[in-house]
Every structure is written in structure tokens, then in C-alpha cells.
Design a protein around this nucleic acid. Structure first.
Length: 277
DNA sequence: CTTATGGCCTGTCAGC
DNA sequence: TGCTGACAGGCCATAA
């Protein structure tokens, strides 16, 4: 589910609602996520205050008092909701509420994840950059070190499809299947094209549209294609801005051609055979 | 080093 | 209606 724009939207909401709150107690009802959540996580985080809420790639970083950081990854189907008295939980099956953090104002942060592909891990803040999950990530796509030069240089000699390279977290961090398709449509490049065959001009367009599309998606609270919900339980509003993702067989908004679906590296890719070359 | 593949899980939907 | 198989926004381990 969540790619960079969804996690960033979540981060912004949690800054407003949860920053400064203290975790009174934590409970795990299902520890088996992608990796098992440490059994002593509840004892370790109880009593700590949420001081900062950051993000790296698709990881949400909850900076806690006592110099610890809680790493949260939502996998495909995870959500982190901040539940108060008026929270409507009808979209969340209680059987998949795996972790629950009670806060000092009577609200709770709840991690729900039907497929359990997510991750929840506590690390010392000083070692954050060196932790296994973050250590090898590529640049943030919205930062200046991700640009046309970087993309052009780092796709030389790469045979893999450009779409798969955009989703390679070591090359650039935070882009997943939906946004990779949308970026390449905007840049007029077919998803199956080998990285090495991307021209300088195309690298310029891909880098520019990466920034534009991700920024706009953040502005719309992310994309809910199926199940993504933000910390209030609300869907993102970027779905209606999608040009190709999930639209196979439908008409390209620009030229009217039928959008095609092709599987690349086990993932569906959507593109316009006329607009993208 | 790069690339391809299967696996992790459950829910949903299309087709029979 | 009920079953089966395919597929889903991510990532990792393994093998070639």
C-alpha cells in the first residue's frame, strides 16, 4: 500500500495529533510481522514521550525520549491510526490490530496490518542511520541529491527495466508501483525500457516528474487505491489524479489509446503505448 | 556486482 | 451460491 506520499501524509498528521504525547503502555497481540516484533518492545517504550516524527523512504520514524527511535514500515496493508473517542474503526478489522500504544491523553496509536508484511523495530537514535533497514537506502527523491545527473549516471550499465530501477530503494528511496507507473507516463518513457537506454533528456523528465508527482500526491494526502487509510482512518485523495495506474483497457486522457498492462518483475505496469516510447 | 524468482500473509474479486 | 486461482501499494533471501 503505502509509498512515500502516503507515509509523508501520515507523518504530517501525526505531528499534529500525537507529537508530545507520552506512551503510557504498549501491548502486542500479534508479534509476527515481516520480522517478529521484539517481545520487550512494550516495556522499553512505556513511559517515553513522542518528541519527533520523521520519515525516511517508506519508513516512519517516531523519535522517543531517552534517545530511542521507533521504526515503522507499513508493508502492503499496514496502517497506524490515532484513535480517540470519535474514531470510526469500521475499516479496520480488530483481529488485525497487532500493536496498541495507549497515550497519556486517553487516545491510542494502533498498528493494524492484515497481511503482516510490515515492520516495527526500536533502535537507538544514535545508530539510526546505520541500522540495517536504512543503511543502504538511496537518496530521498524530493531532496536535491536526487536529480537528472544522479539518475542518468546511476542508470548507465543497468539492464533492468527503468520502472524496476525507480522502485529499487537503493537507487532512489520511497517510490513504489503506483508512482513509478505515473512518473514514467508523465515522462513519456515506457516502463520496460532498459535503464541504460534512458537518454539524458529522459532522465531530466523522469527526475522532474518524480518530484512533481510525489509532491502533488502528498498535497492530496496520498493515494488510496484499495485499503490505504491515514492516521484518522481517512483515504487519500490522489486516486482521481492517476493517469495510468489501474486503468488498463481504459482510454489515455491525452491521446485516447487504450492503456496497456504488462508484468515486469512480478509487478503490474501500466502505460500508454502511444504516449510512452 | 546485477538480475530474476519465490516466499511471506490475508483479503478480494473474476470466472467457472 | 460456493469454489479456485490470480492478484494486491513491499521487501528479503537465494540463486544464477
Amino acid at each position: 500500500m503505502p509509498e512515500l506520499p502516503e507515509v509523508e501524509s501520515l507523518r504530517r498528521l501525526l505531528i499534529e495529533s500525537a507529537r508530545g504525547r507520552t506512551i503510557v503502555c504498549a501491548r502486542i497481540s500479534e508479534a509476527r510481522l515481516r520480522r517478529s516484533v521484539s517481545r520487550d518492545l512494550p516495556d522499553t517504550i512505556a513511559g517515553r514521550t513522542i518528541l519527533e516524527i520523521g520519515r525516511r523512504a517508506k519508513y516512519l520514524l517516531l523519535g522517543l525520549s531517552g534517545k530511542m527511535t521507533l521504526l515503522v514500515h507499513l508493508g502492503m496493508s499496514g496502517s497506524l491510526t490515532h484513535r480517540g473517542r470519535d474514531f470510526r474503526d469500521s475499516d479496520f478489522h480488530p483481529a488485525h490490530d497487532h500493536l496498541r500504544f495507549e497515550l497519556d491523553d486517553g487516545t491510542a496509536l494502533v498498528y493494524n496490518d492484515p497481511r503482516r508484511f510490515g515492520l516495527m523495530k526500536l533502535v537507538a537514535s544514535a545508530e539510526l542511520a546505520q541500522t540495517a533497514e536504512l543503511r543502504e537506502l538511496g537518496p530521498e527523491p524530493l531532496e536535491n541529491d536526487f536529480n537528472a545527473d544522479y539518475l542518468f549516471e546511476n542508470t548507465r550499465g543497468r539492464k533492468a527495466a527503468i520502472k524496476n530501477l525507480l522502485m529499487d530503494q537503493k537507487l532512489v528511496a520511497g517510490i513504489g508501483n503506483i508512482y513509478a507507473c505515473e512518473i514514467l507516463y508523465a515522462a513519456k518513457v515506457r516502463p520496460g525500457r532498459a535503464g541504460a537506454r534512458i537518454t539524458r533528456a529522459e532522465a531530466e523528465r523522469i527526475a522532474a516528474f518524480t518530484k512533481r508527482i510525489l509532491s502533488r500526491a502528498i498535497g492530496s494526502g496520498g493515494t488510496t487505491f484499495r485499503s490505504y487509510r491515514d492516521s484518522r482512518g481517512q483515504p487519500g485523495r490522489f486516486l482521481s489524479s492517476l493517469q495510468v495506474y489501474g486503468r488498463d483497457g481504459e482510454k489515455c486522457y491525452a491521446c485516447g489509446s487504450a492503456i496497456k498492462l504488462k508484468v515486469l518483475g512480478q509487478r503490474s505496469s501500466f502505460y500508454c503505448p502511444t504516449c510512452q516510447r
